[in-house]
Design a protein around this nucleic acid. Sequence first.
DNA 1: GATGAATGAGGTTTCATTCAT
DNA 2: AATGAATGAAACCTCATTCAT
Lengths: 200, 200, 200, 200
Amino acid sequence: MTKVTQEHIDARTGAIQRAALVAFARKGYERTTMAEIAEEAGLSAGAIYRYFPGKAQLLQSVFDEAVGRNSQVFAEESAAAASPLDALGRIGVRSLDEATIDAECMELEFVLTGVRGNEATRDHHSVLRNAIVGSTAALVRDGQAGGTIRRDLDAGVLALAGVALILGLRMIRLERGEEPGDEAAVHAFVEMLKPCPPAS
Amino acid sequence: MTKVTQEHIDARTGAIQRAALVAFARKGYERTTMAEIAEEAGLSAGAIYRYFPGKAQLLQSVFDEAVGRNSQVFAEESAAAASPLDALGRIGVRSLDEATIDAECMELEFVLTGVRGNEATRDHHSVLRNAIVGSTAALVRDGQAGGTIRRDLDAGVLALAGVALILGLRMIRLERGEEPGDEAAVHAFVEMLKPCPPAS
Amino acid sequence: MTKVTQEHIDARTGAIQRAALVAFARKGYERTTMAEIAEEAGLSAGAIYRYFPGKAQLLQSVFDEAVGRNSQVFAEESAAAASPLDALGRIGVRSLDEATIDAECMELEFVLTGVRGNEATRDHHSVLRNAIVGSTAALVRDGQAGGTIRRDLDAGVLALAGVALILGLRMIRLERGEEPGDEAAVHAFVEMLKPCPPAS
Amino acid sequence: MTKVTQEHIDARTGAIQRAALVAFARKGYERTTMAEIAEEAGLSAGAIYRYFPGKAQLLQSVFDEAVGRNSQVFAEESAAAASPLDALGRIGVRSLDEATIDAECMELEFVLTGVRGNEATRDHHSVLRNAIVGSTAALVRDGQAGGTIRRDLDAGVLALAGVALILGLRMIRLERGEEPGDEAAVHAFVEMLKPCPPAS
DNA sequence: GATGAATGAGGTTTCATTCAT
DNA sequence: AATGAATGAAACCTCATTCAT
C-alpha cells in the first residue's frame, strides 16, 4: 500500500498530458519524441508507459481532454449568456482566448487529424465535430426563434460557418501567435448574425 | 546542349511535385516516405535527389506551387467578378471546390504548417497568409467603397474572418469529405457581408 | 529471532520458484518478465529480489530444484524396481508422466539450456547431464551383469540412447501435448534392451 | 536495371540466413540481436530488412530452410540404403553428423519451438514433426515386411522412439559439443531393431 | 518486509540520403 | 541520368533492477 496512490498518479498523468499537449502543438505529433515529452514532464521516457500504453494513446487522451474542456466551455457560456447570440460570441471568444484552449490546444486538434491512416481516430474525430456543429446549430435556432439572430439564413449553415470560422482563426493564430484581430473577427461574425433593423 | 533535357527535367520535376502533393496530403509529411513519392512519380527514390535537395525542400516547393495556384484563383475570380462581394464569394467557392485546391491541397497547407520546428518555413508561411488576408482586405475595402459590402465593420477584420472561414471549412471537409453545406456556408457569409437594406 | 521468518521465507521462496517454473515453461525464459512471475507468486516485482539476486539466479534455482526431483525419481524407482531393466522402464515412464516433470518441467530444461551465453550455466548443466547418463549406465551395467539386459551393446552407449530417448520424447510432447505413444516408445525401448532368447 | 539482381540478392539472403542460423543456434533467438546477425553477414542491421520483413520471419525462413535440408537427407539416404533398416541408420547418423544439420541446426529447431506464444508457428512445427515420424514409420514398416526389422513391436512406436532418440542426441550434443558416443547410440538403436536370430 | 514508480540500457524497426554501378 | 542496395541515425518501446516510502 503505497501512499502516493491516486493523487500522485493523477499528478503525473496530468503533467504528461500537459507536456504532450505543448510538445505536440509546438512540433507536431510525428516530430515530437517521447523523450521530449518525458523531459518536459520531468521523468524518463520509459516512465510514460506506466501511464499511457503508447504514443498514439497519449495523443488520443490529450485530445479527449481538450474536447472535454471544449464541451465545458460550451455549456458554461451557454448558461451564462443573456441570449443565444451572446452565447455564440462568448463561446467563440473563449475558444480563442482562454488558457484552456490556448493556441497550442488548437494545434492539438490539428495534429490529431494528422493521425490520418488511423481510421478509427478519424471517425471518432468526425463524430465529435458533428456534435459541435449540431450544438451550435441548436443555439442558432434558439436565437432565430427569439429574434436575436436573422432568420433569412439556415441555422445549420450558419453553425457550420461559425465553427469553421473559429477553427480557421485558431489555425491562423498558430502561425502568427496571439493576434489582436482574432476576437474582432468573432465579434464581426456575431454582428453579422443579427437581423437587419426593421426598416421602419 | 540540354535541349531535350530541360523539357525532361521540367516533366520530372512536375511529376515529383504532383506525386508529393498527393502523398503528403494523404498521409502527412512525416509519414510519407521518399520511396512512396518516387513510386507514385514513376522513378526511384534516389532519383528525386537530382531534382530536389531533400525532402524538406520538396515539401517547400510543393507548397509554393500550391500557393501560386491560389493567387491565380484570386486574380482570375477578382477579374471575372461583377463586384468585390461577388469576387469574394467566387474565390471562396472555388477555393473549396476546384480541383486546384481540393481536399488534398488543403491538406497540404495543413502538412506544411506541420513543418513547425522549421522557423524559416513558418515565417515564410506566415508571410503568405498575411498576403492573402491583405488582398482580401483590399477586396473588401473595394466592396465597401462601392456599397456592396456593409461599412459598419472593419475591412481587415472581415477579411480575416473570411480567410479563416475558408480555412476552417477546408479543414472540416478534410475530415468529412465533400460536404454539401460547405458552399452554403460561404454563400451565407457573403450574404451577411451585404449592407442591410436601406430603411425605406 | 527469525523463527517465523524462516518459515515465511521458505514459503515465499517456494512460491516464487513455482511461479517461475510455470512462467518459464509457458513463455520461455527471455519472454517471461519478473512482473509476471511476481504476480503469479502473489507479490510485487521488487520483492523477488529479497529472495533471489536476479532473474538468472532464479532460473538456476528453479532448474536445480527440478534436477533434484529428477534424482529423487531415479533413486525411488531404482529401489522399487524388480530389476535394473525394470528400473529403466519405470524411470522413463515416470520422467514422462509424473506431475513432477510434466510437460512444463521439460520445457524448463529446454529454457535452461536456453541460457546459453552463460558459460557457467552451460557447464553446470552439462555436468548434470553427464551424471544422469552415468547413473543410467551403471544401471544398465547392473542389468547386463544380471542378465536382464543384452550384453552385445555397450552400457554407456545404451545409457546415452536411453537418456536421449526420454529427452526427445519430452521435447516432442511439448509440441503435441500428452501423447499416447510416449510410454509405448519407452516400453519398446526397454523391450529392445532385453537379450534375445537363447537359441535353444 | 541493376546487374546485381538475382544473384546478388540470393547471395545476401543466404548469407543472412547462415549468419542467423549460427547466431540463433549459439545464443538463442531472443538473445540474438539483429546487429549481431548483420555483422556476421557483413552488412548493417537495417539492411536485413530489405531481405526479411522482420526478425520473426527471418527465424521462420531459417527454420524452413533447415527442414528442407532434412527432408532431402531423408530422401537421399532412403534411396542410397540397402535396406530400410540401413536407411534408418544412415539417416540417423547423417542427421547427427552432416554439416547440413550440424549441432547448430538442431539448436535451431530448438529455438524455433522456443517461439512459443506464436500458435501458428507451433502448429506448423508440429505438422512437420508428424510428417517426419510418419515417414519414419513407413520405413520401419517396410523393414518389418522385408524381415530386416523385428515385427514384435509397433512400427509407429518404433518410429517415434527413433525420432525422439535423434532429437535427444542432438540436444545433448548441443551441450557437450561433438560427442563420440552419438553415432554409437544410433548404431545401437539400429542393432536393437533387428529381429533376434532365429532360434536354430 | 513489501511496494511499485522510476530509471536506463538495449532491442527492433524505419527511412532520408548516398553512391557504386 | 537512373537505380536501388546500403548506411546510420534515431525513434518507440520493454524490462531487470533499484530505492524511497
